[in-house]
């Protein structure tokens, strides 16, 4: 069982006007078998948290730590983090012209597992995983994310999640831009991943809608670069009824206190 531990994490983005702080002291522990939902308004920094965990070079960690089973994640390169068992399903997956989905997936799976999968077994594994997400088999020969619709991109992210089998998965607004049918298919994929073992899931979302399909164990409200309140699934219901206003006000009040 794996543990992702985030302690007092501060991070900034480099701008023309100097570094701009975005994360202001995040504390969060995700243990294998648990699902955490991080919810927050636009611009609260929740996507930055996802990128910092994955190691995007745009963000500089200025204080705090991230460890995976006690090992310093911040010391790892981007690809080392993935091979250590972290996965980020991106909100805006990138197009890679010239690289086919099948070649990309096999290379990625080979890198994560430490050896290239045997071709025949691999083809079946990929086909089955694609079928489970209602992805057309012809996608295997298309270039990664090139010309994919929003829904297709998200299914492709969850396809990778299911094939790479990370220890801890971070899903960054996987639900945004999906219609109800696509949301159901994607959520089923996430649930299969959750049931596949002692895997941890960190679900970052703006809306409560996805939580009807994926039930979290913990809900965290993320405002102004940190978690301002944590609770059980009932906190999501409260958010749905009341919105973020109360928490924004709370964060502002706390921020004003010296």
């Amino acid at each position: 069982m794996s543990t992702l531990e985030i302690r007092n994490l501060h991070a900034a983005v480099e701008t023309d006007a100097g570094p701009e702080p975005i994360l202001r002291g995040v504390d969060l522990t995700v243990v294998g078998g648990q699902t955490h939902a991080v919810m927050g308004p636009n611009g609260s920094g929740k996507s930055t948290l996802a990128y910092v965990i994955a190691g995007h070079p745009k963000y500089k960690v200025t204080a705090g730590s991230i460890t995976l089973d006690g090992v310093d994640v911040l010391e790892m390169t981007i690809d080392e983090r993935a091979r250590a068992g972290l996965f980020l399903a991106m909100q805006y997956p990138v197009e890679i012209p010239g690289v086919s989905v099948s070649n990309f997936l096999r290379t990625s799976v080979g890198a994560i597992r430490g050896e290239a999968p045997k071709l025949r077994l691999w083809l079946k594994e990929m086909k089955d995983a694609m079928a489970a997400l209602s992805i057309d088999p012809t996608f295997a020969e298309r270039n990664v994310n090139e010309g994919f619709s929003g829904g297709e991109k998200k299914r492709h992210e969850i396809l990778q999640l299911e094939l790479l089998k990370p220890k801890i998965a971070v899903l960054d607004e996987t639900d945004s831009g999906l219609d109800v049918d696509a949301l159901r298919v994607v959520s089923e994929g996430v649930n299969r991943f959750r049931e596949s073992g002692d895997t941890g899931t960190l679900l970052i979302t703006h809306y409560t809608r996805i939580l009807r399909y994926i039930t979290p164990d913990f809900v965290h409200v993320f405002v102004d670069g940190r978690i301002v309140e944590s609770g059980g699934p009932e906190l999501a219901t409260q958010l749905e009824d009341e919105g973020y206003e109360r928490f924004i006000a709370l964060a502002q009040k706390e921020g004003a206190t010296p």
Partner: peptide
């Protein structure tokens, strides 16, 4: 670009292989 490289590396693919995949595809 950096975003393409980030995407491939975030899937465990080392930088050299990421470049190779893109150049081979090209």
């Amino acid at each position: 670009d950096d975003e393409q490289l980030f995407y491939l590396r975030s899937r465990g693919i080392p930088e050299e292989i990421a470049r190779m995949l893109v150049v081979r595809g090209f």
